[in-house]
Computed example of a mutant assay.
Amino acid sequence: MFFEKRSINIRGQSTLGVALGNGINIYNDDYVSAESVIRNSDVWAAVNVISSDLARIKLSTESKKINKLLLNPSRIANRFNFIQSLIAQMLLTGNAYAVRRTDSNQEFWEFVRPSNVTVNLSDDGQTITYDVSFIAPDEPDLKNIDSADMIHFKCFSMDGGLMGKSPLAALSSELELQKSSRNLAVQMFRQAINPMAILKSNKAALTEDAKENVRASFEKANSGSNAGRVLILDPLFDFNQLEIKTDVAKLLNSVDWTRDQIAKVFMLPTDILGNESEHSNADQIRNLYNTTLGRYLASIVEEIEAKLDVQIIADVKQATDLDGIGVEQRVNEMVKAGTITTDMALAILADSQSDLVTQEIVNKVSAKEVLPNE
């Protein structure tokens, strides 16, 4: 049962909790700092895309009480931002936690940072409980929280589903290389002498004032409204356009390589992070991305189902087919193949995310068709 006051343990001091004193600590303050890793723009993009799209998916059940919780899981944040933060935390650290609470018989979830959670395994290896510490001095810590009262999202597990691992664990070398490459590139462009072109004098050495006058005159004659026009040089000067050094170009290309690695570990098509793939079209990219969302969504849905003891229905249309173009294409193909009729196709599209065929449009068209016969 849930507790009514924040100072009371969710399940109370059970015999399992008493035996926990000699249990095995399997996780304690060992997490990746979201604040530091998220400064990498490619990691930011990957985490933001996945967490935002998964948060758009509406979850529902046959229970009105549970539906109310799923629509308003937090007392201090809206559903989208709360779920997005949980998923982002899961992607960055491998684990995300929310304690199940009650207040006036109304259940809600409270987000807890992984650094504030200790997960313990009982001596017999059959029971998991959680200890939670809070930063606020007036909020008492929670001990021996039963696993049923802790929502625990896991990204990837190698220990039988007890704890998750972040995709970032496979990127330590790549992230360090990308950081070093970018820093070196900035240093080279900031400190090196990198003129865009050279205007060489064919006469005696010029004074500093003469050089500045020649430079200013040349720039004025070949920029602004004169840009792109035919270049006419005085015989006294030779002009050469410089190209970027090959070593600098290779250095910058290494950033693209690490971006591909980041996309790979997050199971994203490289196009999502800005690297255009050579052999994929829009439909292939969308299908690959939908598969990725399905992989993450499965663990989230099953965790909620296990903790709430309900069957969850996930409406993925909001995340995978926002404008309905996907279902429109599928319906058109089914009509051409004779699998469904035109009327059935219209009914499907009217009930979908399609922004071309809506129930309102169908009703108006139907009304016009029956009026002449009345």
Score class of each variant (00 low, 15 high):
R6L: 08
N9K: 02
R11L: 07
Q13N: 14
S14P: 01
T15P: 02
T15Q: 13
D29P: 00
S33M: 00
A34M: 02
S36R: 13
S36F: 02
R39F: 00
N40H: 00
V43A: 01
V49M: 05
V49R: 12
I50W: 03
S51D: 01
T61E: 02
T61Q: 11
K68P: 01
L70Y: 00
P73A: 09
R79W: 00
N81E: 05
I83W: 07
Q84A: 06
Q84C: 00
I87H: 00
M90E: 05
M90N: 04
L91R: 00
G94I: 00
N95S: 07
N95V: 01
A96H: 00
A96R: 00
A98T: 03
V99E: 12
D103T: 11
N105H: 15
E107F: 06
W109I: 11
F111C: 08
F111H: 14
R113K: 15
P114V: 12
L121V: 05
L121N: 11
D123H: 04
D131M: 05
V132C: 09
I135C: 01
L142D: 03
I145Q: 02
D146K: 07
S147Q: 13
D149T: 05
F153L: 14
S157P: 09
M158K: 15
K165L: 15
K165V: 10
P167K: 03
Q178T: 04
Q178A: 08
S180M: 03
R182Q: 10
R182M: 12
V186W: 06
Q187L: 10
F189Y: 15
A197F: 12
I198E: 09
N202E: 12
N202K: 14
K203V: 15
A205M: 05
V214Q: 08
R215H: 06
R215G: 01
R215Q: 07
F218N: 09
A221I: 13
N222K: 09
R229P: 01
V230Y: 12
D234M: 03
P235I: 13
F239D: 07
Q241V: 07
I244T: 11
T246E: 15
V248L: 08
A249N: 12
S254Y: 14
S254D: 07
V255I: 07
D256C: 01
Q261E: 15
K264T: 13
M267A: 08
D271K: 12
I272Y: 04
N275C: 08
N281M: 09
N281G: 09
I285N: 06
N287C: 03
N287H: 11
L288D: 10
L288T: 10
T292R: 15
L293K: 03
G294I: 06
R295V: 14
S299V: 05
I304L: 11
E305T: 02
K307V: 11
K307C: 01
L308Q: 04
V310M: 08
A314K: 04
V316L: 02
D321G: 11
D323F: 11
V327M: 06
E328C: 05
V331T: 14
E333A: 13
E333W: 06
E333S: 15
V335W: 06
A337C: 10
T339I: 15
T341R: 03
M344G: 14
M344N: 13
A347N: 10
I348M: 08
L349A: 11
D355L: 09
D355E: 10
V357C: 08
I361A: 14
K368T: 11
E369L: 14
L371P: 00
P372N: 13
N373E: 03
